[in-house]
Each structure stands twice: as C-alpha cells, then as structure tokens.
Write a protein that binds this DNA or RNA. Sequence first.
DNA 1: CAGAATCCTCTCTGATACTG
DNA 2: CAGTATCAGAGAGGATTCTG
Lengths: 130, 130
Amino acid sequence: MSWAPCAAQTPNAYVADCPTRVVLDRISDKWAVLILGLLAESPMRFNQLLRTIQGISQKMLSKTLKNLERDGFVTRTVAPTVPVTVEYAITDLGRTLAATVDPLRLWAQTHFDAVLDAQRRYDASAAGTA
Amino acid sequence: MSWAPCAAQTPNAYVADCPTRVVLDRISDKWAVLILGLLAESPMRFNQLLRTIQGISQKMLSKTLKNLERDGFVTRTVAPTVPVTVEYAITDLGRTLAATVDPLRLWAQTHFDAVLDAQRRYDASAAGTA
DNA sequence: CAGAATCCTCTCTGATACTG
DNA sequence: CAGTATCAGAGAGGATTCTG
C-alpha cells in the first residue's frame, strides 16, 4: 500500500525503481539484516535468537522472521519434539542477499568516522545558525 | 536514542555492529537513496527535486535533505539571487555510499521475481494454515 | 519452547497554512 | 523559490498476558 514512488512517471531510472524499494524496505527492517547475518553463520531457534540479539522484543523477532520467511530468505522448520522445536535457517536466496549487503557493512565501518565528523561540523554550524 | 543493539554484549560481531546500523538507518530512509541517486547524476534545486520525485511531500524532502547534508552526503549551496536559489549536490562521501548501495539495486532487480515467487508460495500455504 | 493477542505509547508522515 | 510551523492520522514497536 502507498507505493508512491512507483507511481512516479519521470524519465529517471531511479525514481520508478520499485524492486529496489522493496529490497531496501526489507533491509531497513531494524533487525532483518542482523538476523540474516546471524543465520548466515548457523541455523538458530527462536528463543536462541531472542537471547542472542537481546534488545529485540519477542514481537519484533516473530514479525521479522515471518517477513524473512515470506520473502524466501529463511526457512522455518518445526521438529515435533516434546516441547516443539523450531529452527530457522538461511536460504540460498537469503545468502546472496546477505552477501550483497555485506559491502555496506564494510562501507559503514570504513566511513563511520567521516560521517560522525560531518555530523559534528553540521551540528556546530547549525548551532550558530539557529 | 534507544540504540538497543549497541548495548548487546554478545560475542557475535553482527550484534554490536553499530556503524552498520547507522548506515542502514540512513539507507532505510524511504527517500534518501532515491535522492542520493538523483543527485549523483547532477545537482538539483529544492523544487526541482520535489517535482522530479513526485510522491514525496515537501516536508519529507526537506527533512531527508537535511539528514543527508548532516551526514556529509550532500552539500547545500545558497545563491543570493532575487528569489533565493538553493542547489543540492552530492559529495565524494555520498558518491562512495551511492556506489556501495548500487549493487543492492542490481540484486533487487535480479532477484525480484524470486522474492515475489517466495511471497506467493508463502501466502498460498499460509491461507491453508490459517 | 515458540509463539499469538492485547493494550498503549510514541514516532513518522502527510496535509495545510504561513514566511523571507 | 525554499523552506518552517502546526495539526492530525496511521502505524511501528514495547510490555504484558495467555496458549499449545
């Protein structure tokens, strides 16, 4: 709902770029990338993720996992043990996404200081402006 | 405020990865990537961007540009013409970010169908589950 | 263990009106 | 032209409670 940018009819390729927005929206999920990264290392169970991430609510974990599963990035496997056991694992598709997002992590680490510097400069001059 | 994941003390590298989150949060700004992409092609003025993007509100454009400027991704240049003219341009830092995000665009375009397929399958089976 | 359902708050965002 | 200020609605997300 409300895919405004998709309706834009400008000749610019970036504007009408819907698939990109879909992906970016998933990436922007505060926890999605984090979970994907964890699952890329090894499959995990629900409460295991809940404990590992620590800061995520049960609701958000549930919701995020559901989204990731829906997009085909992770699989959900239920083992009919006594207290039911559910394991989440990354898919091949999810793995390619994780691999694509990874450079962003490196960029962030590399340019983090530059960004912080820019912010400090901006805030300093903005203080005088206001 | 509320940087929960930063507070997590797990041994996993992904969890405490703050710079990544900062970058992802900026990327997740619905319009930030779009604007950055436009400015990467050529500098633009405020209303020019407003008209080009078409679907963004003036408020969001203003806010997003301010954020991008604060992070050092774009510059804001005021020309003291009769009705004041403001030009926004991408910086070198912004350009490296745009370049890093670009693979994500390609990934999105390449795997968009796979994601849609996964969603359809999920929705179909979910219908039976519910 | 692995969630679903409920409540409630707080932010994001759009629409509208005003300014230099 | 290039914004800022204000109001109001929608939705994200946390805390808590309950279930199979």
